[in-house]
Design a binder for these strands. Structure first.
Lengths: 121, 121
DNA sequence: CAGTATCCTTTACGATACTG
DNA sequence: CAGTATCGTAAAGGATACTG
């Protein structure tokens, strides 16, 4: 098992596990992976499914996920052009793990909300 | 299952699952949970174990995790004072799930690094 | 349709100094 | 020892306008 704590600043920057986990960080990557679990989607559809993401941010996050190999981007030159995004096997694996996390969150959100109220009071 | 996509901006802000997952977001919460998995630690020890976190940021993140009920803070008034942080059952559950994720990252970081090189080239 | 470009705000984080 | 206070930086994100 690789070490991810007790690291100096430069070690931490080069830690591959931290780099990967930092991708799950951020509001959007997880939601994008979820949205693509049922099959490929075009840019516009993806934007509608997620709902509250801007075009610029969606593009940014798609590029980042594509770079790491979680999804593929394929252009069907029209006109009009149609760009399809689809999870890779790696992306499906990660999406599955994150879904476990989301299900846990769904089961426990009541408890957590109460904890917050207690702390704030 | 609660819905976490296709939400308006205000729905998203009130989505309990998104709120919980946003806690895993950020560089530090996950590392703090990991550091406390083997038992309680004092503030200073926790800081040393993580290595590259500042005092201010550690405090901030500990308060946030305490607020959600993932850990408890107990003060042993000295002098000198000693403050112990310890995972709750909820915290241990979350830490376990995140460890699964970290192990997956450890197994796949080679593949991901290669994907990045291909994309950048 | 699927983006870019620009500008702005917010949030996280870092560095350093100080304190009961 | 375990913080708080203050200041500054950087990255993420939001809003809006424009384009092949």
């Amino acid at each position: 098992m690789l070490q991810i704590t007790a690291l100096t600043k430069t070690e931490a920057e080069n830690c591959p596990i931290r780099q990967i986990l930092s991708k799950v960080t951020g509001k959007w990557q997880l939601l994008i992976l979820f949205a693509l679990q049922d099959g490929s989607l075009r840019f516009g559809a993806l934007k509608r499914v997620i709902g509250d993401i801007t075009q610029r941010v969606l593009t940014e996050n798609l590029r980042s996920l594509e770079r790491d190999g979680y999804l593929t981007r394929s252009v069907d030159p029209g006109p009009p052009v149609a760009v399809h995004y689809q999870l890779t096997e790696l992306g499906r694996e990660l999406a599955g793990l994150l879904e476990t996390l989301a299900e846990w969150a769904a089961r426990n959100h009541g408890v957590i909300r109460k904890a917050r109220q207690r702390y704030d009071g």
